[in-house]
Design a binder for these strands. Structure first.
Lengths: 340, 340
DNA sequence: TTATTTCATTTAAACGATTAAACAAAAGAA
DNA sequence: TTCTTTTGTTTAATCGTTTAAATGAAATAA
């Protein structure tokens, strides 16, 4: 019930000045301050369960020990994993995390950005949506440290970006399909201009073309809305009409929808189609065959993002993270009986 | 590059007082203030892209427009969904969310609590871990509005709790199994003393006993560590030795591990065992059969939690949310050939 | 012409902490 | 005994904003 106690309350109760209380509780001038007075102050502070008001401290120091994190959607496993690791690393360094979801909407992104700036966060980790890059100016104006996560933009110095080699990731996927004997792959991606997904696409297209010669690689794009239905249509077309022997799902959500279709229509994996997904999901374990997927080093990336915010030296580094193909049953080689 | 501009900067530049700037920018005393002066101030503020310092505002008003959310783990789908809805509702009311994960560790919980209190959040939404209830005293001490989410504690007035009827949820599950002709169910739960999970257990045990007469219901408990292996052992035992015809997975994580075992060992669902899971997951869609599950009204619960924080009237309400059994193929009735 | 309103703006305290600088009293050096 | 140091504490400014109260000038009323 008791309201919060301030240094002033303690000072008044003991008939000393606020400054003295501050010095004692912060362990300053320990050699000058009377031991008994100090003891009295400490005791009363404990008794009243004194907690410094972080707001007041922040006003003086203009440090809030808070990092702002803007992602697409916290309920998406990819981002919630990142949030998890960012929180972990931030905590380790004595920082907290405020988060906001922009749902790929640049206006929403800008509005959250403004709020976080007004809140005086000490740094920002941003999964900038398409069309949101122009609002980064606002961050620069107030010279707030920031990094862009997952996404990339041409105007942005590489040292400000924490992401993976998307081109290379797709290259590895295509090569893996080849090695396992799958020669006709369809990739399914979101329709978007986001540069990192473009790179992922190019990695697929170019590597496929090289490997397959002239044949045009099969690349499908779906819109966010009606994703489920679109994917059903696409997969059935790819499998039944185009007779592909392998599918490459470009994102988490696409993978989920795609695997659901495969399960529902009893399309055998990998016998009828092999499957590779981008990003990890618990769910892959419960599909009839365990799923081969591209693993991003989320923990390392998150740590790097936080460290870039907090450490100017690390902020200068340019680093592209490499992904790892986790090979499971969904790309098992098919032994063709006729060749035996 | 330019540092942040304050009201003082604007005031100085125009040779007026800070108070006047404040009045103008907050639209106070509009009838008294000279229209031209007001215009000048507004113009310069816009020009300099003035953003009020929220920290300073908070210090004066002791309102931070921030809600603290403490959950077990943001990367767990259940909590990230809740975080999503809480953020959504909080935003709608002009609030932000800071979050912390306590990983079911009461000390960690207490430490996050302290930080949030020092940060002067306006309210707290807490998934209190076992043994963490004693730290709620700290929150009461500073008379901060709070609600406990998902969990329940005897000492706590029901109006402070936002959760579901766990007993009833299990009752419905058992009855559903009965109706579908499954008579020997094993439930798999976490080993815990958390009251809400106890209620879930009692709902299962009592309804089962009543339905089955004297036969002791099969109830397995697993430890958090080695969860995967334990569950494998348990399921194989339940299915092969005890010959159960149905499984009831008590939580998200148990369900995932359990379904993975069923998939790996090719245990047919629902032909060999029917399955019901607690809580929703994308993953259920990609299991060979769609999974019947207990759905919590997460959105409504999240909204209620936020509203309880922000509205003293709603804070008084006592409400237990009801779950909904989403029936899918994993509990399809088995037509026994021998009876035909 | 003097008193009263109205208008436009400023002063100053406050929120809760930090911190450089000032100060008074006691102790030590000359 | 006077001067200098040391010891222990206070004063006051500051961070950026809000807001009640004060102020002074112009307009209106008496």
């Amino acid at each position: 019930m008791s309201k919060k106690v301030s240094m002033k309350d303690i000072a008044t109760e003991l008939g000393v000045s606020v400054a003295l209380v501050s010095y004692v509780l912060n362990g300053k001038f320990t050699n000058r301050i009377n031991v008994e007075t100090a003891e009295k102050i400490r005791k009363l502070a404990k008794q009243h369960n004194y907690r410094p008001n972080q707001i007041a401290k922040s006003l003086k120091s203009s440090k809030t020990y808070t990092i702002g994190l803007i992602i697409a959607d916290i309920s998406n496993l990819f981002y919630s994993s990142i949030a998890h690791f960012i929180e972990e690393e931030a905590n380790k360094q004595g920082y907290n995390v405020v988060f906001g979801s922009a749902y790929e909407d640049p206006e929403r992104f800008a509005s959250i950005l403004d709020v976080f700036i007004a809140k005086q966060v000490d740094g920002l980790i941003l999964a900038v949506p398409e069309g949101g890059e122009k609002y980064l100016e606002r961050v620069k104006e107030v010279s707030l440290p920031f990094v862009v996560l997952d996404r990339e933009f041409a105007e942005l110095d590489r040292s400000m970006i924490v992401n993976i080699d998307n081109y290379g990731a797709s290259k590895v996927v295509v090569e893996h399909f080849q090695q396992q004997g799958f020669t006709k792959t369809a990739a399914i991606a979101l329709k978007t201009n986001l540069k990192h997904l473009q790179a992922r696409k190019e990695g697929f297209m170019e590597t496929s073309s090289q490997a397959l010669g002239l044949r045009e690689p099969l690349f499908y794009e779906v819109l966010e809305k009606d994703l489920e239905q679109e994917i059903e249509r696409i997969i059935l077309h790819a499998v039944q009409v185009e007779k592909v022997d392998s599918l490459y799902f470009f994102t988490n959500r696409i993978a989920m929808a795609g695997l659901a279709v495969l399960a529902r229509f009893d399309i055998a994996v990998p016998e009828q189609v092999a499957v590779v997904c981008f990003d990890e999901a618990d769910a892959y374990k419960i599909f009839k065959r365990e799923i081969t997927y591209v693993q991003q080093p989320l923990k390392e990336m998150s740590q790097m993002a936080v460290q870039k915010i907090l450490n100017p030296e690390i902020r200068k580094l340019k680093k592209i993270f490499q992904t790892k193909l986790i090979v499971k049953e969904s790309t098992n080689q098919i032994i063709d009986n006729e060749k035996l």
